[in-house]
Amino acid sequence: MDVLHERCAGVDISKKDAKACVRTASTKRRGTFTTETTTWGSTTNAVLALRDHLLAAEVTLVVIEATSDYWKPFYYLLADELNVILVNARQAKNLPGRKTDVSDAAWLAQLGAHGLLRASFVPDQPVRELRDLTRARTQLTRERGQTVQRLEKLLEDTGIKLSAVASDIMGVSGRAMLEALIHGERDPQTLAELAKRKLRNKIPQLTEALTGRFRAHHAFLTRLHLDHYDQLTDAIGQLDARLEEAMAPFRPALDLLDTIPGINRAVAEVIIAETGGDMSRFASARHLASWAGVCPGHHESAGRTKSTKVRPG
């Protein structure tokens, strides 16, 4: 098998340290290679020292396995002066029974030397920052939804069925009723009269739904949930404002994506943050769909299809 990189390094990363294996051609016997494995810390100074070590070894390729988020400081610092590729752990699996950090580093170096690894897509810094913002907003939005679910669960404990009548208990009418409950109002008719607009047509149903056993204990927890909901809403608003500024260079692509039926502004921002907005790095639309994880798997053996599940993406 051809050797594309006579001086190649593999780096196996963990939270506290990293094993770096430098694979170079042997000076004693032609066609053979020697390996040197060293251990380095994961702090910035240690990674910079590793970079100097690899530069001194004159490696032409550094292979890093994508391990959680631990690879990021290594990739960002080493890529400044070295040819670094990030590889998917599934594509660089070691042989069973040989799983150690040292052997993994050597295995990465060997695969990289023969060009058997495909580099993962690592976007530029502006796109990485967009990803951080959109992913944080997605997470906070999910947490806000979970807060509403906890509140609904709490109301079930009181026997109040507000969510069975009002589609959104965090709307103007729902919030007014919840605030009144917190402040001691227990009369179902009085609470139902707080309904606004179309919900006023359901005052009889609301009166029935708001009859329950709402105690001081429930008022305390409801207050906590409402405050948490408002904090998350405020944080999401700050992220939206920040994203508005960060999306300025991608405005044409964002406006174009927003015209597609079923894709709103927020989804368009996520698409740009995840793909970078530059489609030239993908050979075709099929490559993009495969990279995004929306293509079914293809695993066939002896004429039988074994798996077609979609991978996480």
Rank of each mutant, 00 (worst) to 15 (best):
R186P: 09
S163T: 10
H183R: 15
R186T: 14
I182S: 05
G184T: 09
L162V: 04
G159Q: 09
D187F: 01
E193Q: 14
A195R: 00
L178F: 04
A195L: 03
L194V: 07
D168S: 11
V165T: 06
A180Q: 08
V165N: 04
R142C: 02
T147Q: 14
A192D: 05
L199N: 15
Q189K: 14
I160W: 00
E152P: 02
L181I: 04
I169Q: 10
A164P: 05
V172S: 11
M177G: 05
Q149R: 14
A192R: 12
T190D: 07
L155N: 02
R150T: 07
S173V: 00
I182K: 15
A176F: 01
Q146A: 13
R144P: 00
D187N: 15
K161F: 04
H183Q: 15
H183L: 14
S167E: 11
A176T: 01
Q146I: 03
T190F: 02
I169P: 03
R150L: 13
L178W: 07
H183K: 14
Q149I: 05
V172I: 12
G159K: 07
H183I: 08
D187P: 09
E185G: 07
E143T: 06
S163F: 13
A192F: 08
K196Q: 13
A166I: 10
L199Q: 14
A176D: 05
